[in-house]
């Protein structure tokens, strides 16, 4: 029984690391970053590339990979999202082109990864981080599993507090409400967008590195399947909500583990879709409603 609990905790933590950033950039900037899965993958791949140059500990590799994946999303913002936003008649009109552009970027990243890995699965070197089993409060968990849980909860709580308490965090909320008013208050949309995008990418990259150690494998499409899970998490937690994403992540993970235990492995990936459909049927306006009427 406790094994299932540990499984759900680790799975939920991966979902949280992945989804918090995706939900944040959607809620605040109207960017549905469909390259988020590729960014997750890019984090893991960059760790592989860094360690292939020389043996380094995870304490060095992880921040470096987060920097790379965060930097990639910042690059997306500069090259694609910002020019599209600037050109659009209003913020709402930029949302769909930005989402489509993110598929384009994702395509470039996947092509790069496919060529680099020659279509095979890779694993990160053992000397970067040695996986072993540990015992916490009577639960048996791998040290990497424990690390994933600690990072997910730690980073989510830190980010949640930052958005709730700091001046920049409150500015994010104002922009999410109305970017026009944000401009009046002297908030620089561009700077906040860069910050949000960087955090979003760095979190995904962190998840990618830790996850690839956890399952001892990485490949070009490793992030794609997570998008479906992230959508379910966002539907449960609400668009743009950090706490919602965190809670939704563990709810989904628990539901998946439960489905696997009670029905079978085949059910695991269907749970997310069923969750999306059920919530949409039950509360179509509720959980997903956002900006309604923009100033004319």
């Amino acid at each position: 029984m406790s094994g299932y609990f540990v499984d759900a905790m680790i799975l939920g933590s991966i979902y949280a690391l992945f989804t918090v950033g995706l939900s944040l950039s959607w809620g605040i900037l109207g960017v549905l970053n469909l390259a988020h899965g590729s960014i997750f993958m890019a984090g893991a791949l960059s760790a592989y590339m860094i360690t292939s140059a020389g043996a380094l500990p995870l304490a060095v590799v992880l921040p470096a990979s987060m920097l790379v994946s965060g930097g990639l999303v910042v690059l997306m913002e500069l090259v694609a999202f910002r020019p599209i936003r600037r050109r659009a008649a209003n913020p709402l009109a930029a949302e769909l082109p930005m989402a489509i552009a993110s598929v384009g970027v994702s395509s470039v990243l996947v092509a790069f990864a496919n060529n680099f890995t020659a279509g095979y699965s890779l694993s990160l070197p053992q000397d970067m981080f040695t996986v072993s089993s540990i015992n916490i409060l009577g639960l048996t968990i791998t040290n990497i599993g424990a690390l994933i849980v600690v990072f997910a909860i730690g980073l989510t709580v830190a980010l949640g507090l930052y958005v709730a308490r700091s001046r920049q965090g409150r500015a994010l909320k104002v922009i999410a409400q109305d970017s026009y008013v944000g401009g009046l208050l002297g908030i620089s949309m561009n700077r906040l967008a860069l910050g949000t995008m960087f955090i979003s990418g760095a979190l995904a990259g962190c998840g990618g590195v830790l996850f690839s150690i956890h399952v001892n494998s990485m490949h070009a499409y490793m992030g794609e399947a997570l998008l479906l899970k992230a959508f379910a998490v966002i539907v449960v937690g609400g668009i743009g909500s950090i706490w919602g994403a965190a809670i939704g992540a563990y709810v989904l993970a628990a539901a998946e583990v439960l489905a696997v235990v009670s029905v079978g492995v085949g059910m695991r990936d269907v749970v997310a879709f069923v969750l999306i459909i059920v919530i949409l049927l039950a509360r179509p306006q509720g959980l997903l409603s956002k900006r309604k009427w923009q100033r004319s």
Binding site: A101, V105, A111
Partner: peptide
């Protein structure tokens, strides 16, 4: 090819 198509999508959109 995927990379080229990705670049085309972004460039045309921008």
């Amino acid at each position: 090819r995927l990379a080229v198509q990705g670049v085309i999508i972004v460039v045309v959109l921008v």
